[in-house]
Simulated assay, not measured.
Amino acid sequence: MFIRTPADLGAVIRDRRRQLKLDQAAFAKRIGVSRQWVIEIERGHPRAELGLVLRALDALNIRIDVDADQTVRRRAHGAVDINAIVDKAKRPGHDQ
């Protein structure tokens, strides 16, 4: 999946929260934020504090894996192709 915008990230967070059967209030309490913060991040608020976003992703077991030295295929608009990163990491002989 490509995450290109804050709205894309919000959708991922919302979908995973729902998969885990957490309501917004319970999720907010788990990560130490207000329910309003959860509402805003799920709606794609573009100015959410990075530390809180990372805490939210961690609470949902959503992992971000970045290899700064890796060449990544990009679409014309510059989005990172996560599938290409995963495919390369799964190839035999890839250092892990």
Score class of each variant (00 low, 15 high):
residue 25 A to Y: 06
residue 92 P to R: 12
residue 74 R to A: 14
residue 57 L to V: 05
residue 67 D to M: 01
residue 31 I to M: 08
residue 54 L to H: 00
residue 67 D to K: 05
residue 55 R to M: 09
residue 37 W to L: 05
residue 57 L to G: 08
residue 92 P to E: 13
residue 35 R to A: 10
residue 17 R to G: 03
residue 11 A to Y: 14
residue 19 Q to S: 14
residue 23 D to T: 04
residue 5 T to C: 01
residue 95 D to E: 06
residue 40 E to P: 09
residue 40 E to T: 07
residue 40 E to I: 04
residue 16 R to C: 02
residue 15 D to H: 14
residue 35 R to T: 08
residue 85 I to P: 00
residue 19 Q to E: 14
residue 76 A to R: 14
residue 46 P to S: 07
residue 36 Q to T: 01
residue 6 P to W: 00
residue 58 D to G: 14
residue 19 Q to P: 00
residue 33 V to P: 00
residue 45 H to M: 13
residue 22 L to K: 07
residue 36 Q to L: 01
residue 44 G to L: 06
residue 13 I to A: 09
residue 19 Q to Y: 07
residue 16 R to Y: 13
residue 58 D to N: 10
residue 13 I to P: 01
residue 52 L to Y: 08
residue 53 V to M: 09
residue 95 D to S: 11
residue 76 A to P: 09
residue 39 I to V: 09
residue 24 Q to W: 04
residue 25 A to W: 08
residue 96 Q to A: 12
residue 3 I to Y: 03
residue 45 H to S: 12
residue 59 A to Q: 04
residue 88 K to A: 11
residue 26 A to K: 15
residue 14 R to S: 09
residue 38 V to H: 12
residue 39 I to N: 08
residue 28 A to V: 03
residue 8 D to N: 09
residue 71 T to D: 14
residue 47 R to I: 01
residue 72 V to Q: 06
residue 70 Q to C: 09
residue 90 K to L: 15
residue 54 L to K: 01
residue 84 A to D: 07
residue 53 V to I: 15
residue 59 A to K: 06
residue 36 Q to M: 01
residue 67 D to L: 04
residue 21 K to G: 05
residue 28 A to K: 03
residue 55 R to F: 03
residue 48 A to G: 14
residue 77 H to I: 15
residue 24 Q to E: 15
residue 8 D to Q: 07
residue 9 L to C: 10
residue 34 S to F: 00
residue 13 I to L: 14
residue 9 L to T: 12
residue 61 N to L: 10
residue 59 A to Y: 12
residue 3 I to P: 01
residue 72 V to G: 03
residue 49 E to Y: 02
residue 23 D to H: 10
residue 10 G to E: 13
residue 82 I to Q: 09
residue 58 D to Y: 07
residue 20 L to V: 05
residue 20 L to Q: 03
residue 95 D to Q: 06
residue 63 R to M: 10
residue 5 T to Q: 06
residue 91 R to H: 10
residue 72 V to P: 08
residue 78 G to P: 06
residue 54 L to F: 06
residue 95 D to P: 09
residue 76 A to T: 13
residue 46 P to T: 10
residue 26 A to E: 15
residue 87 D to R: 06
residue 51 G to T: 03
residue 53 V to G: 01
residue 28 A to L: 05
residue 72 V to N: 02
residue 5 T to P: 13
residue 10 G to S: 13
residue 85 I to A: 01
residue 54 L to R: 02
residue 64 I to L: 11
residue 7 A to M: 13
residue 86 V to K: 12
residue 18 R to Q: 11
residue 59 A to N: 08
residue 66 V to E: 00
residue 78 G to R: 07
residue 33 V to L: 05
residue 32 G to M: 05
residue 49 E to D: 09
residue 24 Q to I: 11
residue 50 L to D: 01
residue 30 R to M: 14
residue 42 E to W: 05
residue 33 V to F: 00
residue 28 A to D: 02
residue 86 V to A: 15
residue 72 V to E: 02
residue 28 A to S: 04
residue 37 W to V: 03
residue 39 I to K: 09
residue 51 G to S: 02
residue 28 A to H: 08
residue 43 R to S: 13
residue 24 Q to F: 04
residue 95 D to A: 11
residue 14 R to A: 12
residue 60 L to P: 05
residue 20 L to A: 04
residue 60 L to K: 03
